[in-house]
């Protein structure tokens, strides 16, 4: 059993084999042992629309440290989702390369999971079955079904295990989608505007939950968002993109302890700066 699974189990209070004392795990220490990182090197991408190329990414280079939480900000339609799909291995870039722990990304892999803007739950599967999909696909469900229960507890939806997706609210559905990713114990969690369609109260709750999960479980996270405040509350580093084709126009380290407060003066100040950047980018 590897480290993140153990921490996932122990967080849910249900580790079957061995539990680590929770207090001994600070996030950087835990992740330093796991030599993972995402390397996006000079990636450009274009789509063919009616025969003519549409440039979407322009020479993007990002190096993500293990356990880091990176937020990608940029105007709508600039190419953020495209970049996440490339990182997930769902598409291959027109130019440049993407490496996970030094290995080229050549297809989807459960170690890198993408949570889509729409929860995209399978409507014919119950909540439990949805979360179980990854384990089932890899033939692990028979032996490790407890992980599904734990993941549902983690997102506080264990009471809804037998519900069907159409019976869930938007926030619950998005939490199921997150549990469906986390149950696979991904090294890298790619989140594509996961809270974009939720009401602001639900969004604030889920932001806090996500921060906590990230601290407890210790995955590396890349979050696409159009909400500057969300980026500053959650991320270690905020990367700002230009209009399409997306180019990196600015990067900000956010060196603040969690949980962060949205009225923190430094964060408010940083938000003004980034909004300025985006304003320039929007010109």
């Amino acid at each position: 059993m590897n480290a993140p699974l153990k921490s996932l189990l122990s967080f849910a209070g249900l580790g079957r084999k061995r539990q680590e004392p929770r207090s001994s795990r600070t996030v950087p220490a835990d992740n330093a042992r796991r030599n993972i990182a995402l390397d996006i090197k000079n990636v450009s991408h274009h789509f063919d629309i009616a025969g003519s190329p549409l440039a979407v990414l322009d020479n993007v280079t990002i190096s993500v440290k293990p356990g880091e939480f990176v937020a990608l900000l940029g105007p709508s339609g600039c190419g953020k989702s495209t970049l996440l799909r490339l990182a997930a291995g769902l598409d291959t870039p027109s130019r440049g390369s993407l490496l996970e722990e030094g290995q080229p990304i050549d297809g989807p892999d459960p170690s890198r999971l993408l949570v889509f803007q729409d929860p995209t739950l399978f409507p014919w599967r119950t909540v439990w079955r949805n979360v179980a999909t990854g384990l089932e696909a890899r033939g692990l469900l028979d032996t490790e079904s407890a992980r599904v229960d734990n993941a549902l507890k983690l997102v506080k939806l264990d009471k809804f295990a037998d519900a069907y997706p159409h019976q869930l609210s938007g926030g619950m559905a998005q939490r199921v989608a997150i549990a469906r990713a986390l149950v696979n114990d991904p090294h890298l969690l790619l989140l594509d505007e996961p809270f974009g369609k939720l009401d602001s109260l639900t969004r604030m709750t889920l932001q806090a939950e996500l921060t906590k999960l990230w601290q407890e479980v210790g995955f590396t996270a890349i979050l696409v968002t159009h909400d500057v405040e969300e980026a500053l509350l959650l991320a270690n580093r905020v990367i700002v993109f230009s209009d399409r084709p997306a180019r990196i126009v600015a990067e900000f380290e956010v060196d603040k302890p969690y949980p962060r407060h949205r009225d923190d003066t430094d964060l408010v100040h940083l938000r003004q700066t980034i909004l300025g950047q985006l304003g320039i980018a929007n010109d």
């Binding site: 769902l90 989807p108 993408l114 889509f116 399978f122 014919w124 990854g134 890899r138 469906r180």
Partner: peptide
């Protein structure tokens, strides 16, 4: 069938057989 279902299944480690039996068939029922 919504292509996003296949994307989700693929990232979760589903092979083609799983995608047919557990995604394509129930979705098209």
């Amino acid at each position: 069938v919504n292509k996003a279902y296949y994307d989700v299944a693929r990232t979760l480690g589903a092979d083609e057989r799983f995608q047919i039996l557990k995604v394509a068939i129930p979705a098209s029922l």
